[in-house]
Lab assay of single mutants.
Amino acid sequence: GSVVKEKKEKALIEVRPYVEYYNELKALVSKISSSVNDLEEAIVVLREEEKKASEPFKTDIRILLDFLES
């Protein structure tokens, strides 16, 4: 629970300088966080969101995924 939350919060802070739609990304992460149990599940849902998103938000999600998977 809290470790996953920390990882996601740290990821958002780390990617902030590189993303165009930070507030939207943060809102998406919050929405996903409330419906998943762990980081792996969150990553799966983020990948689905990435497929549906259009640029440049798609790239923002990709940047976040790269950080979460590192």
Rank of each mutant, 00 (worst) to 15 (best):
G1H: 08
S2P: 07
S2W: 00
S2M: 09
S2Q: 12
V3C: 15
V3R: 06
V4Y: 02
K5I: 13
K5E: 14
E6Y: 00
E6P: 03
E6S: 11
K7Q: 11
K7G: 07
K8S: 15
E9S: 05
K10M: 13
A11E: 03
L12G: 02
L12A: 01
E14A: 14
V15E: 04
V15R: 01
R16W: 15
R16Q: 15
P17D: 15
P17K: 10
P17T: 02
Y18D: 15
V19T: 02
E20R: 06
E20T: 15
E20Q: 13
Y21E: 05
Y21D: 14
Y22I: 04
N23R: 04
N23G: 06
N23S: 07
N23M: 13
E24Q: 06
E24A: 05
E24F: 03
E24L: 06
L25D: 00
L25E: 00
K26D: 10
K26Y: 14
A27F: 06
A27E: 14
L28N: 01
L28E: 00
L28I: 05
S34Y: 08
S34M: 11
S35E: 14
S35Y: 13
S35K: 10
S35W: 13
V36H: 05
V36K: 04
N37A: 12
D38R: 07
L39F: 11
E40A: 10
E40M: 09
E40Q: 11
E41H: 09
E41Y: 06
E41C: 05
A42R: 02
A42D: 04
A42V: 15
I43R: 03
V44R: 09
V44P: 07
V45G: 11
V45T: 07
V45P: 03
V45D: 06
V45M: 14
E48C: 10
E48P: 00
E48G: 09
E49N: 05
E49H: 07
E49Y: 07
E50M: 14
E50A: 12
K51L: 11
K51Y: 10
K52V: 08
A53R: 04
S54Y: 09
S54G: 07
S54E: 13
E55M: 07
E55K: 04
P56S: 05
P56W: 06
P56T: 04
K58A: 13
T59I: 04
T59L: 05
T59K: 14
T59P: 04
D60C: 12
D60K: 01
D60P: 04
D60Y: 11
I61R: 00
I61W: 01
I61H: 00
I61Y: 01
R62D: 02
R62W: 04
R62I: 04
I63M: 05
I63E: 01
L64G: 00
L64D: 00
L65H: 01
L65P: 00
D66W: 12
F67K: 06
L68M: 11
L68T: 01
E69A: 11
E69L: 08
S70T: 11
S70V: 10
S70K: 13
